[in-house]
C-alpha cells in the first residue's frame, strides 16, 4: 500500500472540475489566508470522489501545488488515512470491519459471505470492476456489530444472508436499505427502548 504499485496506469494529469473547484474554494475559505494547507484533507477527498474513488499521484500533486504545500506532505496525509485509496477501486468499495467488537460478533462470517458472493479475496477487485473488498479497523459502529461500509453508507447488524443480499442488490443496480438490518432503530436496543420509555411522571 505504501509505495505505489506498478500494475495500473497512473494518469499523467489531474485537475478539479469547475463544480469541484467551487467546493474546494469553500473549504479553503474556512481557514486563515496563510493556512490554506489546512484544507488538504477535504481537498484530497474531493479529488478522490472526482476520480472514481481513488487518488492518483497526479491528484495528490495537484492538491499540494494548489495549496502551496510540499508534495511530500500531501503524500504523507494520503498514505496515513485508509480512507484515501491510492489504487483504483471498484464502483462499490466494500469495507468490512474486522476489529475486535465486530470480530466477536462474527465478522469472520461476514468476510466469508462477501468473498463468496463477490468471488474475490481481501484487497481484490472483481473483474467487472463493480466491487473491491477490503477489511477495515473499527469504523465506530460497534454498537451494531458486525458491520460494513460500502462507499458512504453503513450496513449494520449483518449476518451472512443479509450481507450476500446487499451485495446482490448492488450488483443489480438496486439500492439496499442502509443502517441496521434488523428490528432496530438507529442504535437503540433491539425491539425498542428498555428504559426511559415513558414520561418522567409528576405534573
Amino acid at each position: 500500500m505504501n509505495t505505489p504499485t506498478q500494475n495500473f496506469e497512473q494518469p499523467t494529469s489531474f485537475e478539479f472540475t469547475p463544480e469541484v473547484m467551487d467546493m474546494a474554494k469553500a473549504h479553503i475559505a474556512k481557514y486563515p489566508a496563510d493556512r490554506q494547507a489546512s484544507a488538504v484533507m477535504p481537498l484530497l477527498d474531493l479529488a478522490q470522489r472526482q476520480h472514481d474513488g481513488w487518488l492518483p499521484r497526479a491528484a495528490m500533486d495537484y492538491v499540494a501545488d494548489f495549496l502551496g504545500m510540499p508534495r511530500i506532505e500531501a503524500y504523507e496525509v494520503a498514505t496515513f488515512y485508509t480512507m484515501y485509496n491510492l489504487e483504483p477501486v471498484g464502483k462499490h468499495h466494500v469495507q468490512v470491519c474486522t476489529n475486535l467488537p465486530c470480530w466477536l460478533r462474527g465478522s469472520d462470517q461476514i468476510v466469508e459471505a462477501a468473498k463468496r458472493n463477490l468471488g474475490v479475496e481481501m484487497g481484490e477487485t472483481t473483474d467487472d470492476g463493480l466491487f473491491t473488498l477490503s477489511s477495515m479497523e473499527c469504523l465506530g459502529a460497534c454498537v451494531n456489530a458486525p458491520m460494513m461500509q460500502i462507499n458512504d453508507d453503513y450496513y449494520e447488524d449483518l449476518d451472512e444472508t443479509v450481507t450476500e443480499s446487499i451485495l446482490t442488490e448492488l450488483r443489480h443496480g438496486q439500492t439496499p436499505k442502509t443502517g441496521s438490518q434488523i428490528d432496530r432503530k438507529s442504535c437503540e436496543p433491539i425491539g425498542g427502548l428498555t428504559s426511559l420509555n415513558s414520561d418522567a411522571g409528576g405534573d
Binding site: N2, T3, P4, P70, I72, Y75, E76, F80
Partner: peptide, 25 residues
C-alpha cells in the same frame, strides 16, 4: 531536509507498522 536544507522532499508515509521514511516518489 525540511528545515535546514529547505528542500521538503523527505517524509514519512504510511502509518504504524507500515510507516516508511523516503521521498515516496
Amino acid at each position: 531536509a525540511t528545515e535546514i536544507a529547505g528542500v521538503p522532499e523527505l517524509g514519512a508515509t504510511g502509518r504504524g507498522e507500515h510507516m516508511e521514511v523516503g521521498t515516496y516518489v
